[in-house]
């Protein structure tokens, strides 16, 4: 254990704020069926989410997506795994933070932009723990930001490196 290599925050701070290219997907086409699946998965098939005529009667173009839907088809793990950390690691999902700015409607095309928002370091009993906050900004086809999602991953460097 004592021979375990130690990392400092200074080695990682230069990564903060950098855009992360995850390779996939660069566009999220918001489909009615996907919205319905999401609404059913959270056991809340509100007519705004599943009934287009109802949503139109409320002034929307189509059904709207339940909150946190933007993460659809966006594998959070892939985003954090694309951060170029100088060690192998295993991780746990630590938390979610959302800002909901504008309704997402079926037919919207969202573009996620990913960056590393923050890294902090904790010296735990079992070794070092890094908290990585990856921020995904979702922009729609009208260039409006609709949601900002920050996901925290608890990153533990693997031993014996």
């Amino acid at each position: 254990m004592n021979s375990q290599k130690k990392y400092t925050l200074e080695q990682l701070n230069s990564l903060i704020g950098q855009e992360i290219k995850v390779g996939y997907p660069t566009r999220i086409e918001v489909e009615k069926g996907a919205v319905k699946n999401f609404a059913e998965a959270i056991r809340y098939a509100h007519p705004l989410y599943v009934n287009e005529a109802y949503a139109r009667s409320k002034g929307y173009r189509s059904v709207i997506a339940p909150p946190t839907f933007a993460a659809y088809d966006y594998q959070r793990g892939d985003a954090v795994r694309s951060v170029p950390l100088p060690f192998e690691w295993s991780g746990l999902h630590g938390g979610d933070e959302w800002k909901f700015i504008k309704d997402i409607q079926a037919g919207d095309v969202l573009t996620p932009t990913v960056k590393l928002a923050d890294i902090s370091l904790k010296e735990g009993k079992k070794g070092q723990i890094f908290l990585l906050k990856v921020e995904i900004t979702y922009t729609n086809q009208d260039n409006e930001i609709v949601a900002i999602y920050r996901s925290t991953t608890i990153v533990m460097p693997k031993e014996g490196q």
Partner: peptide, 29 residues
């Protein structure tokens, strides 16, 4: 974890109803 986060978001939108707006939500696992 994100399912629990989505269920918390559902609690808020269900509570405030259609006239309300959910602006922010955090969830630590």
């Amino acid at each position: 974890g994100p399912l629990k986060c989505a269920l918390l978001a559902r609690l808020m939108v269900q509570w405030i109803g259609e006239e309300g707006t959910l602006l922010e939500l955090t969830c630590e696992h």
